[in-house]
Simulated assay, not measured.
Amino acid sequence: MKNLKSIALAFVVALSTLAVTAQTKKVDVSKSTINWVGKKVTGEHSGTVNIKSGALVFKKNALKGGTFTVDMTSLTSTDLTGEYQGKLNGHLKADDFFGTDKYPTSTLVFKTIAAKGNDVYTVTADLTIKAKTNPITFDITVKGDTATTALKIDRTKYDIKYGSKSFFEGLGDKTIYDDFDLTVNLKF
């Protein structure tokens, strides 16, 4: 009986040691950034969108998980000012783009993570925009208290079809490319 108690105690200690090694680090949303670039035949627009909340999970200093919520209502262009900025921001927040009144947040949830070496991981995650969820895969670099990544998102997978030559003919120089780029810098 005493031997059984010793084994049970050792098992509990081993499990608690494993639990302690997992560490969740909250993202400092005031110091983290998401920059976007959307391209069209005649040029491009760039801007920012804010992270509402986020966290990365580490086990023995290795990335093991992550979850993020983005405040879509903060979406703004940075390449324009004044009236033109207001018009573009309004259009991006309208239903034919991100519909921020109905869908004020987007989420990213890490599903699988594979270490590539040199602080780089390949992540497959579920990205939800406008209540549509699709898997995306990207590399993320984690060093110290920072993480960085660059993502390419196909907006048409999230029912954002405005100006897409994939859905509309004869757009000519009014065509907006389906992919947009995100550059993410996280501090935690």
Rank of each mutant, 00 (worst) to 15 (best):
S74Q: 15
D101Y: 11
F98A: 09
L92R: 12
T81L: 00
Y103Q: 02
Q85K: 08
G90V: 11
S77D: 14
L88C: 07
D79H: 08
T67N: 15
H91Y: 09
G90H: 09
F97L: 10
P104R: 11
S106R: 05
V109F: 05
P104Y: 11
F110G: 08
K111M: 00
S77K: 12
Q85F: 05
Y103I: 06
T105L: 03
G66K: 14
K64T: 12
T112M: 01
G90M: 08
T73P: 15
L80S: 01
S106C: 02
G99S: 11
V109R: 02
D79Q: 08
G66D: 14
T105W: 04
D101G: 10
T76Q: 14
M72I: 00
D96N: 12
K87S: 05
K87Q: 05
T81F: 00
L108F: 02
G82H: 00
F68V: 09
T112W: 00
H91E: 03
D71C: 13
G99E: 12
D95C: 05
L75F: 14
D101F: 02
S77Q: 15
K64M: 13
N89M: 07
G99R: 10
G90W: 10
Y84R: 03
G86Q: 02
L75I: 15
T81A: 01
A94S: 15
L92G: 08
F97M: 07
H91S: 13
T81R: 01
K111H: 01
K64C: 09
L92A: 12
T105E: 07
F98Q: 07
G90R: 07
K111N: 04
L108T: 02
T67H: 15
Y84M: 04
Y103C: 02
T67K: 15
E83M: 01
S74E: 14
T107K: 04
Y103S: 03
G99N: 11
N89G: 09
D95S: 06
A94R: 12
T105H: 06
F68E: 09
D71S: 14
L108M: 06
T107C: 02
H91M: 04
F97P: 09
Q85N: 08
S74M: 15
K93N: 12
G65I: 05
T107A: 02
F97G: 06
T69M: 13
V109T: 08
A94N: 14
V109A: 04
V109C: 03
F110P: 07
F68I: 08
T76S: 14
G82E: 02
A94C: 12
P104Q: 10
H91P: 03
Y103M: 04
T73Y: 15
L108S: 06
D71G: 06
L75S: 01
L80M: 06
F97S: 13
V70E: 11
T112D: 00
L92M: 14
K102P: 05
K93Y: 10
G65Q: 08
F97T: 11
K93V: 11
D96K: 04
Y103A: 06
L80N: 03
Y84E: 01
L75E: 14
T107Q: 03
S77T: 15
T78E: 09
L80F: 03
V109H: 03
F97N: 12
F68G: 10
G82M: 00
K64V: 09
L108D: 04
P104F: 11
L80C: 06
D96A: 09
S106F: 04
F98I: 03
L108P: 05
V70I: 13
K64R: 09
K93H: 04
G66M: 06
G90A: 04
I113D: 07
L80I: 04
